[in-house]
């Protein structure tokens, strides 16, 4: 069994070598690698967080955009409705004004027509009276002679009171 004997010196040396290698690896490889992995993981987490935040913000922006679009649409409808109402109102006002003007013109024309009618009637009446008096004067002039004229003069004179 001489070939399978444990050489305690070699074993101890191997153990020491292994321990030294272990500490050296831990100090120069494992710890920096761990730190690197930790940093990387943190960065990845940060990136994931940022991505989530960005997603959330994007969602918020989308919501806001939709909200604004809805509001704009409502505003647009409101403005359109308002404009339509205003236009309708103005149209009604214009129609009303035109109607009033038409009525005023009609009334004025009626009044003028009545005035013309009255003036014509008055002129006709005056003409009839004038003609009647002219005729009367002519008849009297023809029918009254000197004798009658004297009688009438005396009659007028007798009625004069001084």
């Amino acid at each position: 069994m001489s070939g399978l004997e444990i050489n305690w010196k070699i074993l101890l040396g191997q153990i020491v070598n292994f321990a030294i290698l272990f500490f050296a690896l831990k100090l120069f490889v494992y710890n920096p690698l761990l730190s690197l992995l930790k940093t990387r993981r943190e960065k990845i987490e940060e990136g994931v967080n940022k991505s989530k935040q960005a997603e959330e913000k994007l969602g918020q922006i989308r919501d806001l955009k939709e909200k604004m679009e809805r509001e704009n649409e409502a505003k647009k409808k409101e403005i359109l409705l308002k404009a339509q109402e205003e236009a309708k109102k103005r149209s009604e006002e214009l129609v009303k004004k035109a109607e009033e003007e038409r009525e005023a013109l009609l009334l004025k024309a009626q009044k003028e027509a009545e005035a013309i009618k009255e003036r014509e009637a008055e002129a006709t009446k005056k003409k009839i009276i004038d003609n009647a008096f002219l005729l009367t004067e002519k008849l009297l002039k023809e029918s009254i002679d000197a004798t009658k004229g004297k009688e009438i003069s005396e009659d007028f004179l007798s009625k004069i009171k001084v």
Binding site: I144, A146, G149, K150, I152, S153, E154, L157, I160
Partner: peptide, 19 residues
């Protein structure tokens, strides 16, 4: 002023009496 040429003496006399 008279309307016809009649005898106006009477009338003139009466006028003078009145006025």
């Amino acid at each position: 002023y008279i309307s016809h040429d009649f005898d106006k003496e009477d009338i003139i006399k009466k006028i003078k009496e009145k006025f």
